[in-house]
Nucleic acid binder design. Structure first.
Lengths: 109, 109
DNA sequence: CGTGTAAGGAATTCTGACACG
DNA sequence: CGTGTAAGGAATTCTGACACG
């Protein structure tokens, strides 16, 4: 049922490692979280946990910042992409629903 | 040239996360390293860094320990597998070498 | 706006050792 | 042999704030 995440999306990397992986400062990483560009999870004790996807996203963000794009703009971009992907998802499911209605239940929702 | 490791083999997970992921105690994890069953890397400050592959291996190890197999046996098993894989690798390269000699250089060593 | 930094505290990790069995 | 635990210290991470611009 629930999308069961590959390694790439598992939140298991602490901020120090992310710093080493991206070359960004911890300050920058925390700031981008504050601006809602990334969403690390938390350990029981409160430490941030990132995924490889987050690491890649951070590098994209860093590039855009260097190009002078503001975090607010980056966030809006990301929301637009998110919205588009959601719509594609809905469309896909509707088409699948049509097929199911005509030809019966199929595997792979 | 150098095998460029997928996410699965990157050493980026600290011991606390590995503990949560495997259900093992930190003591057990450190002990299996001491017995040369796993080989975490180290951060600049000395903290262990594991990969997802290590995490999976640890779960296999834990199962074998439960079955009463000793760490020394597990290590020998692993060395045997390692050896076999190396031989397969050599064989593969030799065959590829033969092909190259007869039909010229090909992509994908 | 984006980032550096010093501050103080809490969580994390490390090693070597004693214990049990 | 494999694992728990208390011990002391060092490395890691956290938050809120001041600074600059």
């Amino acid at each position: 049922m629930a999308k069961d995440m590959s390694y790439k999306d598992k939140k298991v990397i602490t901020i120090g490692i992310v710093r080493d992986l991206t070359g960004l400062s911890e300050r920058q990483i925390r700031y981008y979280e504050e601006r809602k560009l990334i969403f690390p999870e938390r350990s029981a004790g409160g430490s941030r946990k990132f995924s490889f996807t987050d690491v890649e996203l951070l590098m994209d963000i860093a590039n855009k910042i260097e190009d002078g794009i503001q975090t607010h703009e980056i966030r809006k971009e990301m929301l637009r992409e998110q919205k588009k992907q959601n719509q594609d998802e809905i469309r896909r499911k509707m088409i699948q629903g049509q097929l199911n209605a005509q030809f019966g239940i199929r595997r792979n929702s």
